[in-house]
Design a binder for these strands. Structure first.
Length: 415
RNA sequence: GGGCCGGUGCCCGAGCGGCCAAUGGGAUCUGGCUGUAAACCAGACGGCUUUGCCUACGGGGGUUCAAAUCCCUCCCGGCCCA
């Protein structure tokens, strides 16, 4: 927990029977690891007999949340948005219990476009806008940087976002008895706006709860994937189960305890046992492995998790060229692959060419750089800048494992 | 509508006629050391048919032997005035 509007809230949630919501704006077609934190919290609260509402932001996504964003963002087209809403709705549906067996804590999946796109402008301004003071709104930290900076502005569209989110909370309160909103720490201002709106319009009390921004021990934002600016997605076609597994396995020692607590549903005993192992024998990475296994299970299922674990161990601990064919294929199942004509290899294939073709290098110049820096491996054996790739490298008469750097693996299949 | 300021590589940001593929920082990548961490150290960081050539400093046009740098114009952003 990062901030909480009222300390009595925790007792309330412990007792159960509270309706809680978290919103997810469809800025992309998939949710990412950052969203998983809110999802886990909802799930945890559901396990404690509260009723979770997952709200897809089909309406708020039309506007765009300016909170703590450095610049105005381009608007998504309606087509993109619909596509994204579809994607994240189906993902949200996987994490909570929507069946009748959950009884009074059965989860709800809603989309705020249902009310945001139908309310009339004048109704909205009279009923909702009247309760907001611009004086207070411009004082919020979440928009302050945009107002203070000399080179960027803040459009009325984005400025209004807070009202929409506040109205969401109000509608969920009135229609579904929702009294708590959770979110990341950047959502504090928006959540408080909703609480005040509910108080002014109904004189009911409601609550907010935010979670801390997850940081790695080096201060970077958590959740950016290996290889740059891409996020770690929950959609298997964007981030494969193996990649997700590896990402979590590579968590550093300092953040792993926090991640275990946020993202897994292990018992207190199990977690403190893992903490101890990290203390005493960090090189075993027991906590990281448990974390990776638990999260991949949660997101992609047990089977995907155990095969990711097997692949991970095989790929890094054994000499890959000694694996039998079936095991080898399983290890690289998630890796991207490319077909190459057998004849090309027969005459000796240029490594530069192959790196570009497999997209392991973005250009020939980059491929040469990797080779010069001695960062290219065939079947886990480093090759020299001048080496050609020949039939001698081929495993099981049709496979080549090409790797760039520590983590980028590619399967080449001869045809 | 008027006045002023600004738009440079992934981001921030210097350059303000030739010595500019463009200083610096961050991010990223590769290697080293490690534990498939972190920290640290070293190097790379537009492309190509690579002692050279091509494409790039918001778009288009112009001046000049020569433009990211000067002029015109358009687009976009900011501030102030109406």
């Amino acid at each position: 927990m990062h901030q909480c509007t009222d300390d009595s809230l925790l007792d309330l949630l412990g007792a159960g029977n509270v309706t809680v919501y978290a919103g997810f704006d469809p800025t992309a077609s998939s949710l990412h690891l950052g969203h998983l934190l809110q999802i886990c919290t909802l799930r945890r609260l559901q396990l404690a007999k509260n009723r979770p509402i997952a709200l897809a932001g089909g309406g708020t996504g039309l506007i765009g949340d300016p909170s703590f964003k450095a610049t105005e963002r381009p608007l998504l087209t309606v087509e993109e948005l619909n596509h994204n809403v579809l994607g994240i709705r189906s993902q949200l549906a996987r994490f909570l219990d929507f069946t009748d067996s959950a009884g009074s804590s059965r989860a709800l999946l809603l989309d705020n476009s249902a009310w945001l796109t139908t309310i009339s402008l004048t109704d909205f301004l009279r009923d909702v806008g009247k309760h907001f003071s611009v004086n207070q709104m411009i004082a919020r930290d979440s928009v302050k940087s945009r107002l203070d900076r000399a080179d960027v502005g803040l459009s009325f569209t984005e400025f209004s976002y807070m009202l929409l989110q506040a109205y969401d909370f109000y509608r969920l309160h009135v229609d579904h008895g929702c009294t708590v909103q959770i979110g990341g720490s950047d959502q504090w201002g928006n959540i408080v706006g909703g609480i005040e709106l509910i108080r002014k319009m109904t004189s009911h009390a409601s609550f907010g709860l935010t979670s801390p921004l997850l940081l790695r021990s080096d201060g970077q934002k958590f959740g950016k994937s290996e290889g740059g600016n891409d996020r770690v997605w929950l959609d298997a076609s964007l981030t494969s189960p193996f990649q997700l597994f590896q990402f979590l396995l590579n968590s550093d020692d300092e953040t792993t305890p926090t991640l275990l607590r946020f993202f897994t549903f292990l018992s207190h005993e199990e977690i403190s046992e893992l903490d101890e192992k990290t203390q005493n024998s960090p090189q075993e990475r027991a906590a990281q492995r448990a974390l990776a296994l638990a999260v991949v299970s949660l997101v992609h299922g047990d089977e995907a998790a155990s095969s990711a674990l097997r692949a991970s161990e095989a790929l890094f601990s054994e000499s890959i060229s000694e694996l039998d064919e079936a095991t080898l294929l399983e290890v690289v199942a998630d890796a991207p692959s490319t077909n190459v004509n057998r004849d090309e290899v027969g005459s000796g294939l240029d490594a530069v060419e192959l790196l570009v073709r497999t997209k392991l290098a973005a250009s020939k110049a980059e491929a040469r750089r990797f080779l010069d820096q001695r960062g290219v491996y065939v079947n886990n054996v480093r090759i020299e800048p001048t080496d050609a790739i020949t039939l001698d490298h081929v495993l099981h008469s049709r496979y080549l494992i090409l790797r760039r750097g520590r983590h980028q693996t590619h399967l080449i299949v001869l045809s």
